[in-house]
Computed example of a mutant assay.
Amino acid sequence: MARTTLTRTVLAAVSAAALFALGACSSDAGTQTGGGGETNAADDGVITLGFSQVGAESGWRAANTKSIQDTLTAENGFDLKFSDAQQKQENQIQAIRSYIAQQVDVIAFSPVVETGWDAVLQEAKDAGIPVILTDRAVDSSDETLYESFIGSDFVLEGEMAGQWAAEQYDGEGYQAVELQGTTGAAPAIDRKDGFESAIAGSDIEIIDSQTGNFTRAEGKTVMEGFLNAHDDIDLVFAHNDDMGLGAIEAIEAAGMTPGEDIKIITIDAVKDGMQALADGKINYIVECNPLLGPDLADITKKVLAGEEVEKRIVVKDEAFDQAAAKEALPTREY
C-alpha cells in the first residue's frame, strides 16, 4: 500500500549532479552554520548518517529497520552507520556520543523513551550535527535540539482504536484489558491516552493494564496473568500487533477462541497481525506505517542543503477490519 504524508511534499530522487553540487560547496563533515544556514556533507558528496534504532522487539521494528537500511545506501549517496540499542536508553546515548565523536553529518534515532535526551542532544548541537527523530518523539522544552520529527500520530492511533471499540461494543458492558508498550515510550503513553479518551462515555471499562514491552513473548505472559486474575475479559487492546499475537496464544492455550470469546484490537498492521485479522483472530487493527526510510533520506538532504523543514512530519495511517485486511494482504509491503 502506498504511503501518504500529511504535511510534506515528497521529493524526487536526488540526481548525481545535485549530489556533486552538495559535495562541492561543503567544508568539513559535520559542520553547520548558525541561524538556519547551510549544513554540509563531506567533500565526496556522501552523507554519513548515524542511526540508533530502538531494538528488534517486533515485526514492525524489523520492517522499519529494513526500510532505513534499504534506502540509506551507497547507491543513494549515504554512508549509514547503524546501531541497535536493545531497548536501553543508555545504549542509545552511548551510540549518539559515538556518532558525535566520528563527526557524522547527521544523527537520526528512534528514542527508547521520551525523556532524558537534552544533555546528549545539546552535545550534538554544540558539535554542529543536526538530529532527526524518527517514529518516536522526545519530551523536551528546547525544540532547537532537533531538526524534525518523522512518524505517526500515536494519540490518533489510540483514538481510532477506541472509537471503533465504542462503536462496536458500547452497551455491551465490555470489560477490557490493555497490553501497554514499553513504559515511558511515546507510543505507549499516547496510544493509552488516545484509547481512553475515545471510550470515555461508553460502558467499556479497562479492568487491568500492564506493559508487555511491545514483544510477543511478554504479551503472552501478561495475557496469561490477566486470564488468571479475571474471568470476565471481553476485550484486549494491545498497543502493537506482536503483543496482540502473544495474547492470541495465551487465549487459545486457555481453551478460548480469540476474536470471538475475547475480542482483540491492535495497532501496527504488520503482515502477521493482518493475517490474524484476516483469519478472524484479531477484530480490528489501526496501522502504524514503518516505512520511514524514504522520508528520512528526503529530510536529511533538505537539512544538509540548508532548506527549511517541517518540525513535525506526520504520516497517514489507515485502519483495517477483516474484509480490508484480506484485500490488502496480497500486496502488503510489511
Results as ranks from 00 to 15, higher is better:
M1R: 05
R8W: 13
A13K: 13
C25Q: 11
D28N: 10
G30K: 01
G34F: 12
N40F: 12
A42T: 03
V46M: 13
T48L: 01
S52L: 13
Q53F: 13
Q53R: 08
L72C: 11
E75P: 01
G77H: 02
F78T: 03
D79N: 15
L80K: 10
F82V: 07
S83G: 11
I93D: 01
A101D: 09
I107T: 08
I107P: 04
A108N: 11
P111M: 05
T115S: 15
G116T: 05
Q122T: 06
P130W: 00
I132D: 07
I132L: 15
L133T: 03
A137M: 13
E147R: 12
W164E: 13
A165Y: 00
A165N: 03
A165S: 04
D170W: 06
Y174T: 06
I189Y: 00
D193M: 03
F195W: 10
E205N: 14
E205Y: 04
Q210E: 09
T211E: 15
T215G: 10
E224W: 02
F226K: 10
L227N: 12
A229K: 05
D232K: 04
I233L: 10
D234T: 03
A238S: 10
A238W: 00
D241P: 12
D242E: 14
I248L: 10
E249C: 04
A253K: 00
G255P: 07
G255C: 10
T257R: 10
T257C: 04
P258L: 11
D261R: 07
I264S: 02
G273P: 14
N283P: 02
C288V: 12
G293V: 12
T300Y: 04
L304R: 11
E308I: 11
V309W: 09
K311S: 15
V315W: 00
K316D: 14
Q322E: 12
A324N: 00
A325F: 03
K326I: 03
T331M: 03
R332W: 15
R332Q: 13
